[in-house]
């Protein structure tokens, strides 16, 4: 038996307004995110604008052309790994002074086996 026999399509319920809402709604979602895309695509260039102008004034057009361009993640990862490895290789500076620590434990009745409570345990 078909469980969904009671489902009935009603094409008359669909009006032009509904289709318009769906099309416009989907388009507006695209428009909103398209604006975000355009803005954040241009943002690195906008942020580097002052730096480029400064470099051009200082007579370094080559540097100005590449200023603000993205550093690839792989380059960052390589730099971070190199720093990590370098710091890992470093050792603490030792004083080279020898010290002798006392090995024997000082006696106390509190840590003595003789006075331990288990000494008098009952069965």
């Amino acid at each position: 038996m078909n469980l969904f026999l009671w489902i009935q399509l009603n094409p008359d319920a669909l009006k032009a307004d509904h289709l318009m809402l769906a099309v416009i709604g989907y388009s507006v979602v695209f428009l909103a995110l398209l604006l975000l895309y355009i803005f954040f695509r241009q943002l690195p260039k906008l942020l580097a604008f002052n730096l480029r102008r400064k470099l051009r004034k200082e007579g370094e057009p080559e540097k100005a052309a590449t200023a603000g361009s993205a550093v690839p993640g792989e380059v960052n990862a390589a730099i971070a790994t190199a720093i990590f490895l370098y710091l890992n290789e470093l050792h603490d500076h030792e004083t080279a002074v020898l010290t002798i620590t006392k090995a024997a434990k000082s006696y106390s009745p509190w840590n003595s086996k003789i006075y331990n409570v288990t000494h008098f345990r009952r069965f």
Binding site: I7, Q8, L9, N10, P11, A13, L14, H18, L19, L21, A22, V23, G25, Y26
Partner: peptide, 11 residues
Amino acid sequence: FTTYIGALLLG
């Protein structure tokens, strides 16, 4: 948006 249309069709 497709489901919106589908739900309207289903009443």
